[in-house]
Design a protein around this nucleic acid. Structure first.
Lengths: 154, 154
DNA sequence: TAAATTATGATATATCATATCATTTCAATC
DNA sequence: GATTGAAATGATATGATATATCATAATTTA
């Protein structure tokens, strides 16, 4: 799981964009790269700053937001609603099709794990919700707590 | 479910605060009242404005944030992380102890239903998460979609 | 009533996000 | 390869959400 080769992920992202007729420009790619290198979710402003550091090139925050929108539309990046930060999809290089992401967010070290919750479980959740006559958009779950490492440090 | 008597809820809130040695001041109570009267979640700034309209008295947004913090600590108000808005707890007047809230948020009319998801389901979700060696804080779920009314209007 | 605690006010500023119009880049067609 | 239309990016302004900090007022407790 750890230390996935960034280049491979970027190549796969490129392939996936070509397939869908989307243009992964070099700036968009750099934004994705920044997020792949980051150890925790980043805000748009943080991303702009990291971009500057890593490329010696200035980038307007406006552009960052637009590029993040593009990356999200292409399932390469997710936004965490609960802290207004962005994270690279953990499954870019996986072969299987992307399902709705579920996130475990550590409130101490801020690292995030993107997990696959049991499909049956999600399905049951959806059923329970349809009982309330509610039509679900996408059941992205964001769950806050403590990761393994931070639990041990107590 | 609809048209719960606001006064009764406020009385129950008062009782609950007394029990816990918390001071439900008149301003805090008014803030809660504003949210009880609102038909959808409101931002702190909206709450300040509604407060002005309903009491003919000015209130600094800073104070609103603090009062919301108080109300949240006492489980009288919840914050929706996915849209940065606040909502009165739907179960203030219920006898049963408060469990982790789950929200169905309509992306069209913005109304919110606070539901009780099946306990077993939540439990299963928690188990699945512990498999990932993650220690959950509180599994508040925010699910976006379309409510019954808005589905029909399509 | 004095002192301590808690609540609220006032001001400034940080942080997150969108609207809008201008400019540049890219890609298709001639 | 120049022309042109579409897409991407830049620049500027501003709105929306949130926190830090110090001052003042209200309430509780001794």
């Amino acid at each position: 799981m750890t230390n996935v080769d960034t280049d491979k992920v970027l190549q796969q992202a490129e392939r996936s964009c070509v397939e869908h007729g989307a243009r992964l420009t070099s700036k968009r790619k750099h934004i994705l790269e920044v997020l792949l290198n980051a150890k925790a979710p980043r805000s748009a402003y943080e991303i702009a700053e990291l971009y500057r550091q890593q490329t010696d090139e200035n980038i307007p925050v406006m552009s960052v937001y637009r590029m993040l929108d593009f990356l999200m539309q292409n399932s390469l990046v997710h936004k965490l609603a609960s802290n207004n930060k962005f994270i690279a999809c953990a499954h870019i290089a996986c072969s299987h099709s992307h399902q709705t992401p579920q996130f475990l967010i550590c409130d101490k070290c801020h690292q995030v794990r993107e997990i696959g919750v049991d499909k049956q479980l999600i399905h049951a959740l959806e059923e329970s919700i349809e009982h309330n006559h509610f039509q679900l958009n996408s059941p992205q779950l964001e769950l806050h707590g403590l990761c393994e490492t931070c639990q041990e440090q107590r």
